[in-house]
Write a protein that binds this DNA or RNA. Structure first.
Lengths: 217, 217, 217, 217
DNA sequence: GATGAATGAGGATTCATTCAT
DNA sequence: AATGAATGAATCCTCATTCAT
C-alpha cells in the first residue's frame, strides 16, 4: 500500500478542514498564546462549530502541539539542508537566507515558538527534546565550523547560538512592538530584505575578532 | 504607650500588601502570561482572598500594568544613568553590566516584557509609548555614539538596537528552554557572569567592521 | 430497543428550552425585578445549568429584553385590534375586556412592566421608543375618539391615558399588596371579573362631565 | 428625661450623617430598588466609606426599612389631617392637594413605595400591616363619605381606593417613563399643578354616575 | 463530518459585612 | 464616628468538552 496523503488525492478540494483549523490556530495561538486563545475563536475563524473541531483534534492541547510540529518541521529541514552545504564559501549567508525565507512564509511561527519558549511550560520539554535540541546541536556545529570559528571560546558557543536564535526569531516575534518603534512593518518584504542584509553583516562581524581585545572590565 | 501605627512599631514592617501582590503577580505573569494567570492564584500566592486583591488594584488589567511599570522603570533609569557617562572609554561595557545587574535582580521582568511583546496586544501600545519608545531612542543614540559608529548604516541602527534587546532579554526570557539545552541554569550567577562577558565581546565585535571589508552587499 | 429521537417521538414536544427559559424568567423578573433575579435561579427554575442558558440568550440583559418584548407584543396587538373597531357603541368596554383578558393570561407581565417603569432605567428607553410610545399614541387617540371626548381638555389627555394605564397595570402589579388589603386574591377569576366591571363603570363616569357642569377650570 | 431629638440640639450642624444616609438611600432605592442598590453606592453618594454606614444602620435591610418608614409617616399624617376635615365642601379636593403637596416634596417616595409594592416582597408585609392597612381603611372611609358615595357599589370601594392610589403614586413613580412620552418633566411644578387639577376633575367625575347606566356587559 | 444543546469547572468581579485601628 | 483592609458568598459569564442527532 502506497503511502498516500489522505487529502489532495483525486479530489480538487482546497485545504482540508484539519488544515484550515491548523492555519487558524497557528495565527491565534501566535497572537494570544495558548491560554489566551479560545477553542471557540479558532472554530469561528475557520467557520465551523467548536464541537466540530473535536472531530479533527482530540483536544486544545493536541491541536496546539500539532500546530507547533507542523510549523517547526520544515524550518528544521531547511536548516539541515543549508547546513549540509557547509563547504560553500558564503555558507553563513546561505543559512541566513534560507531561514529568513522560511520564516517569512510562516511569520506566525516565530511568535508561536517565542510564546511557547517564554512560557517555558509543559509543552516545551517535549518539543525541546524532539526538535530543538537537535536543531541546537546542528546550529552549534555550524557555528563552530565557521572559518574563523576559533575566535569564540568553546563555552560561549551555546550563548552565541542562543543569541542568533533570539535575534532572528525576535525580529518576527516582536514585530508588532517593533512596528510601533520604527513606524514600518517589520514583516514587509523590504524590511525583511533589510533585516536579511543586516543579519549577514552581523554574521561577518561576529566571526571577526573585535578591535582592541583589552577592554575586559 | 504612644498611639502607634500598627505597622510602624515593633513589627518589622514587611512589604505592604500591595507590594506583595505586585511581587506575586510579577512572578506569575512572567511564568504564564496575562491570560494564563488567574487572579485567584495571585491572591493565593500572597496568602489573601481574591476579593482582597481588589482593595489594592482596580482590576487584573490594572495590576498587570502596575507590575509592568514597576518593573520597567528602574531598568530604564539605570540605563539612563549608564548612558549618561558616554565619554568613558569602556562605555558600552558599563551599560551591559548595568543592565545585566538590573535584570539579574528581577529575573522575572524580561520574561514579563517578552510575554507582553510577543502578545503585541492591547497593553503593549500604552506601555510602548510611555516607556519603550524613549528607551529605544536612548538605546539608539547610545549605539550611534559608539566610537566607531560609522561602521553601521544609519538605517540598520533600529535593527541593531532590536537585536541587542532580543539578545539581552532573550537570555532571561528563554531561560527555561536554554536550561534544557545547555544543562545549566542560565540564571545562575556563574552563567550570568559568562553571559555578561559574552555580551561585552559581542559589543566589541559588532563595533568593528567584519573581515572582508568589501562585502556590504 | 430502537434508537429513538429523544424529543420527536413519543414525547409531546413541549415548549422549547428557549421558551421555558422565557417563562421562568418572566415570572422571576416580575417578582424580583432585573437586579433581584439571579441567572442561576432562572436556570434552576427551568431545570438546566446556568451555563446552558447562554446557549439561548446572549446575556441576562438580552433575556430580559426578550421577555419584555414577548410579553408586550401580544398586548399591543390585541389593543390595536380592539381599537380598530372604534365605531362600535360600547367600544371602550371592548378595549377594557380585551386588555383585561390579555393581562389575565399573563399576569406576570404587568408587574414586569411596572418594575421596569419604576426603575425608569436603561432598558426603558429602548422599549419605550419601540413599543410604549406607539401604544401611548394609540391609547391617546382612542381616548380622544370617545363619543363625548370633548369633555376632556386636550392637554389632559396624556394624564388621562397615564391614569388608565396606572389603574389597569397597577391592579395586577400591586396584586400581592392588594391581596393583603382586601383579603382576597386580586387575580382570582372572580376578582378579575369584578375589576373588569369596575373599569367599565369607571370608563362610563370618566366620559361624563362631573356634577357641577361649570368646574372645568 | 425629655425626649430629645438626638441631632438638631445645641449644635448648628447641618443634617446628621444618618439623615444624609437616609436621603441618599431614599434616592437610590427609589431609582434602582432594593436589590439594584449597592451599599457602597449609597455611601459614596453621602461621601463616606461603606463601613461607616454601619455605624448608623445595622444592615442594608434596616436602612431600607428606615427609609420607608421615614417617607411614609408624614404622608399618612397629612392624609389623616385632611381626612379629618371631612365636612368641608370640597373635601376631596383638599385631600388631593394635600397629598400632591406632600409627594411633590419627596418625589422619591412614591417610586420607592411602588418598587416595594411591585416586589411584593418580604419588607412589604410588615409595612403593609403597620402603615398601609390603616391608610387604606382611612381612604376607604373617605371615599365612602363622599356626598354621592352611594353611587359606588360597596364591593367596588377597595378597587376605587386602589385605583386612586395607583393614579396618584403612578404619576410620580412612572415619571421617567411618562417624561419620555409627553416630552415634559412630570415632576415640574407646572406639570404637578396640571396633574392636581386633573385629579380634582377626576374626583368630580368619579363621584357622578355615568351617563347611560345600562351598558353593563 | 457537522452541529445545537448541555454542563462542571473556573473566570473576574461585586457584594454586604466585619474588625482593628 | 470613620476608615482601609479583609473576606465568604454570590454575581454574570466563559471555557473546554461531550453527546445525541
Amino acid at each position: 500500500m502506497v503511502a498516500v496523503n489522505k487529502r489532495s488525492f483525486m479530489t480538487p478540494t482546497g485545504p482540508s478542514t484539519a488544515d484550515r483549523i491548523l492555519d487558524a490556530a497557528e495565527a491565534l495561538f501566535a497572537q494570544h498564546g495558548f491560554a489566551g486563545t479560545a477553542v471557540r475563536d479558532i472554530a469561528a475563524a475557520v467557520g465551523i462549530n467548536a464541537a466540530s473541531l473535536y472531530n479533527h483534534f482530540e483536544s486544545k492541547q493536541a491541536l496546539y502541539e500539532a500546530v507547533l510540529e507542523r510549523g517547526i518541521q520544515p524550518v528544521l529541514e531547511a536548516l539541515r539542508g543549508a547546513a549540509a552545504s557547509e563547504l560553500a564559501p558564503d555558507w553563513g549567508d546561505a543559512i541566513i537566507e534560507t531561514v529568513m525565507a522560511q520564516l517569512a512564509e510562516r511569520p506566525h511561527l516565530p511568535r508561536l515558538v517565542q510564546h511557547e519558549a517564554v512560557s517555558g511550560g509543559e509543552h516545551l520539554v517535549r518539543i525541546a527534546r524532539r526538535w530543538i535540541l537537535p536543531a541546537f546541536a546542528e546550529a552549534r556545529t555550524a557555528v563552530k565550523q565557521q572559518p574563523r570559528g576559533a575566535a569564540w571560546d568553546d563555552d560561549d558557543l551555546p550563548l552565541l547560538v542562543s543569541a542568533w536564535l533570539n535575534i532572528i526569531f525576535g525580529h518576527f516575534a516582536m514585530a508588532p512592538l517593533l512596528a510601533e518603534l520604527i513606524g514600518e512593518d517589520p514583516l514587509s518584504p523590504e524590511m525583511l530584505e533589510r533585516q536579511t542584509r543586516f543579519l549577514k553583516e552581523l554574521g561577518r562581524r561576529l566571526s571577526t575578532r573585535g578591535d582592541p581585545p583589552d577592554a575586559a572590565e
